[in-house]
Design a protein around this nucleic acid. Structure first.
Lengths: 367, 367
DNA sequence: GCTGAGGGTGTTAGCGTTAACACGAACGGT
DNA sequence: ACCGTTCGTGTTAACGCTAACACCCTCAGC
C-alpha cells in the first residue's frame, strides 16, 4: 500500500487508517500490529533476514535491506519489546530504584541515568521505594526487579536505598549511587559517588576561613551516622581545632530545615551553619530571619546541591554544586561494566563538587 | 579549596567483587533464575498450577497453593516479565513520556502516575522527549512506544509533549496530562488537566482586588498562544476592564524569570506580576529587587505551582497550589479507561487549584 | 578445476509464560 | 442411580522474536 502522499504526521491521528482492527496474520492476541513475519512475507524474505535488518546485522545485502526497510515502513511495523527480551534472555532496560523523585538530587540523577541509558539503546524503568521498612523494600524489589532485567541502579542515598541495594537478588547486574560510607560493605557492589566528603570539607573550611569559630550542621537523613558529609564537616573542624557542635538532624524538606533553624536561632553561639541540602538551608534561613538573626549579617549559611533556584534565593545561597547528572552517567557506565565483567572499567566523569560562594556567607560580626 | 588529604577523586569508586552468579537450572540463556517449570517440578504439580498460584487464580486448593508457594520460596523463583507480557500479548507497564523531569510539576506528576500504576500492579517506564523537534519526538516514540504497551501517558504541557501525543501510533492506549486548550483536537484524546484557567483567574483577581490597575504576566512556554493560564489572566483583566499588557515570554527556569524581571523592572507602570511558575517568580523577584523595586512594597508577584520551597522564599511566595500528584492519579485512571472502553469513566479527584496568599502581594503604593 | 573462505539467506528450536480447552472427581438435585 | 455443575488440575499451542546452525553461491588462490 502506498501511503497517501498528502499524509503528514500530524494527520495520522484523526483518521485511523486500517492499521488497527484486523490482523494480517491470524494473531488474535495482538491485533493491530504487524509482526516480523508479516514484514517477511511482504518483503519476500525470511523471518531472520528481517530480524537481521532490524538489529543492524552486517551480513545483509543492500538490496534486501532496502526491501525490508520498505516493508517495515509500509506495514508500520515495530518490534515488540517483550518478545525480543524473552528471546534474548535479557531485557533491554535499566530499572532505577529510588525514593521520592521530586527531590532535586534524585530527579537530576534519574535524568542522567535515563540519558545514558537512552544513548546506549536501553529503556528506563522506575521503581519507587515507598519507605525504608523492610517489607516495603522487599515489595519494591518483588515488583521491580525482573530476574531477566538488564540491570538495576539503586539510588542509595538514604536508608531505603541502602536496604534495597542489599536486597537485590544475585544474578542481576546492579550498580548504586551512594553517599560514600553509607553502605557498609560497599566493596560488595559497584558504586559511584560524588565526593561529598571533600564538598563538606570545603564548605566548612570556607566558613572557618571567614573567621567563624565553628560551624554548626543540619544534616539530611542518612543511613549511618558516619555519612560523608558529616565526615568532611568534622574533618575540617578538627583540622582547624574548632569545637565540634552536636549535629542537628534534619529531613529532606524546607520545613524540617525551618524547624532546625528555630533551634539554631535560639543559640547565640551559632554564627555559621552548613546544611545538608539547599532546601534545608532555605528553611534554616527563614527561621533565622524570623528570629531576628539576619543571614548573612548575623549568621552565615551554606547549602548543598546548588539547585537551579539557589542562585535566586534572597540572599543568593552559597552552596556546593553537585553534578548529579554526571553521576547518573557514571552509574550507568558502571552498570554496563557490571553486566559485562570483560568490559573495561569505565572512567568517571562526574564533575568534582564545587563550592559556589554567593551571598549567604560572610565573616562573623566583631563581638 | 583544600582536599582532605586522604581522598582523591579516583578513590570514589569501590571495588567490585563477584556478586554475580551461579545458575540454579541448566538454562544457558538465563542462568541464575529458576523458571516456572522448576517450581512445578519441585512442588510436584504442573506448570499451569504454578501459574495459577502466581496469578491468584481462585481454583487452586489450599493445600496445593501452599506447596507451590513453598517451592517458590525455596527456589527463590520470580517470574520473568518479558515472558508474561509476551504470553498475555500486552505488557503490564505504563510509559510516561515527558520532557525534563527535574521540573517540579513533571516530577510530581510522574510520582502520581507511578503511585497509581503501582497500586494497580503496573510498572512505570519513562521516555524522555529531548526536544520538540519532530525528529526527536519520532525517535522517542520509536524507542519508547512498544506496540504491546500497556499504555502511554503523555505529559503534554509543552510543545514536545503535544507533538508526542499526536504521534502516538493508533492501537496503543493513551492518555495525556494537558494544559487545557493547548491540544487543539483534545477531543481526540482522553486528557486530564488542572483548571489552570480558573487558577490564573483567581490569582489575577487577587491582585486586582488589592487595588492594582493591571497585572503583567510572565508566561511559561506553551504550545499555543491561547494557554489556559493566559486565558484566565486575560479574562480576569477583561472582567475588571483593566488594560491587558503584553505578555512577556519566559522559559522554565529562574534564570529566564530573572531576564523577564529585568525588563519588567524598567517599566515604572508595573506594580503586579503573575508568573507562569514559581521558579519564574523567584527570578522575577530577584531582578526586581536588584533594580531597587522591592517585593511586595513596590511590586506584587504571584507564582504558580506552589513548590515545596515557595513557603520559605524571602518573602514567602503567594502562589497557586496545583495538585500534580492528584492529576497523575487521574491520568492513570483515564488510561485504564482508555485501555478498556467497557469500564466506567473514572471520576477526577485532583484537588482544585487553590490560591495561597503569602507575602509577595499587597496593595499598590499610594502614588 | 578444486578447495577454502567467506557472504547472504533460510530452517529450526527454543525463550518462560499464559489462554483455551480437556478431563476426572466430587457433589447436589431429582 | 443419573445428570449437570463446579472444582481442581493437566495438556497443548501459541506469543514474537533471536541464536545457532545449515546451506548455497561466489570468488580467490593454487
Amino acid at each position: 500500500m502506498a501511503l497517501p502522499p498528502s499524509l503528514t504526521p500530524g494527520d495520522r491521528l484523526n483518521i485511523i487508517i486500517g492499521v488497527t482492527g484486523r490482523a494480517t496474520t491470524g494473531s488474535r492476541k495482538n491485533a493491530g500490529s504487524a509482526s516480523i513475519s508479516d514484514v517477511a512475507g511482504s518483503a519476500g524474505v525470511s523471518l531472520m533476514t528481517v530480524s537481521r535488518v532490524i538489529n543492524g546485522h552486517p551480513r545483509v545485502s543492500e538490496e534486501t535491506r532496502r526491501r525490508v526497510l520498505a516493508a517495515i515502513r509500509k506495514l508500520n511495523y515495530r518490534p515488540i519489546r517483550a518478545a525480543r527480551d524473552l528471546s534474548r534472555g535479557r531485557s533491554r532496560s535499566v530499572t532505577v530504584m529510588t525514593s521520592n523523585t521530586t527531590l532535586y538530587g534524585r530527579a537530576a540523577l534519574l535524568q542522567g541515568i535515563e540519558e545514558a541509558a537512552r544513548y546506549a539503546g536501553l529503556h528506563t524503568d522506575i521503581g519507587i521505594l515507598e519507605s525504608p521498612r523492610p517489607s516495603a523494600v522487599e515489595a519494591a524489589i518483588e515488583r521491580s526487579c525482573d530476574p531477566a532485567s538488564g540491570g538495576v541502579i539503586v539510588i542509595a542515598f538514604d536508608l531505603a536505598g541502602v536496604r534495597a541495594l542489599r536486597a537485590i537478588p544475585a544474578g542481576i547486574p546492579v550498580a548504586a549511587a551512594v553517599e560514600i560510607n553509607n553502605v557498609k560493605d560497599s566493596r560488595a557492589y559497584p558504586t559511584a559517588a560524588l565526593d561529598d566528603r571533600a564538598a563538606a570539607f570545603a564548605a566548612t573550611q570556607h566558613l572557618l576561613d571567614l573567621g567563624h569559630r565553628t560551624v554548626h550542621h543540619v544534616s539530611i537523613p542518612s543511613s549511618t551516622n558516619a555519612s560523608a558529609r558529616l565526615q568532611g564537616w568534622r574533618a575540617a573542624l578538627r583540622e582547624a581545632r574548632a569545637r565540634i557542635p552536636e549535629v542537628i538532624a534534619g529531613g529532606w524538606t524546607p520545613q524540617s530545615g525551618y524547624e532546625a533553624g528555630q533551634r539554631l536561632a535560639a543559640d547565640r553561639q551559632v554564627t555559621a551553619v552548613l546544611c545538608g541540602n539547599d532546601d534545608l538551608a532555605l528553611g534554616v534561613i527563614h527561621a533565622l530571619r524570623q528570629a531576628g538573626r539576619a543571614v548573612p549579617d548575623s549568621v552565615s549559611v551554606v547549602g548543598f546541591d546548588d539547585v537551579p533556584s539557589a542562585a535566586f534565593y534572597a540572599p543568593p545561597l552559597t552552596t556546593v554544586r553537585l553534578d548529579f547528572v554526571g553521576l547518573g552517567h557514571d552509574c550507568f557506565a558502571l552498570l554496563q561494566h557490571a553486566a559485562d565483567p570483560d568490559s573495561i572499567m569505565p572512567e568517571f566523569n562526574a564533575a568534582a563538587p564545587k563550592l559556589v560562594v554567593r551571598e549567604t556567607t560572610r565573616p562573623p560580626r566583631r563581638p
